[in-house]
Amino acid sequence: MANKKDNKEKSPLVLFVAEEKEPLFSKKNRKLLSDPLDDNNPITVQVLGICSALAITVQLKPAIVMAIAVLAVMAFANMIISMIRNLIPNRIRIIVQLVVVAALVILVDQVLKAFAYDVSKELSVFVGLIITNCIVMGRLEAFALGNGVWKSFLDGVGNAAGYGLILVIVAFFRELLGSGKLFGFEVLGHKGATLAESSGLYALGYENNGLMLLSPAALLVVGVLIWIQRARNRKLIEKN
């Protein structure tokens, strides 16, 4: 499923020379950032990282923290692996990638416990499960092992942003439709015990959709997103 055109530039010499002359945000580098947001989105196009997208998108806040955590892990993991890519023994490269990702994830977890304790409790095991997020390992294997540090960094940020973008969109709809809130604020009015005690939409008899609080709702929202994206971006439609 992964797009194979953006890596496999085999000759290190050519790569080195090309990098020297390239401005930091050349068109090609900008594409590394923007591609995963749309054309090559890890969730809606490559359909990776779905598990965490289901679990932590009930509310916006944990979704955003998760997106930032994944961003930090992916950017640094890509950078570190790219830095040592010529030193890694080929036979244990997957293990090396795992160790680097695991170390970064533990760091993120410790930092969250120290500075964002509530969120870290809410995310609980899912921070740890970033290790198993297919997007992270996928990008290390497919990109960081064969590309320069700066490009790998951009690729990591881009893919994490593409993942985070979908997470936030899904969380927005799930929190809004599921509990009538955004970031915990009651944007649709207050739901009282009776109609008379309610305000806003609830006073008109509006009810929250309980389905949106359950994990399958994330699949529904992601499905709708994929539909919208492909309707708009025709080249993503498979021809078979």
Partner: peptide
Amino acid sequence: RDSNAYTFIFATVMVIVVAASLAIAA
């Protein structure tokens, strides 16, 4: 890079570096 000795040395150094940095952070 593909010799057994290199692989062992690399793994050892990596584990020590990672363990030390995690211990300091924790």
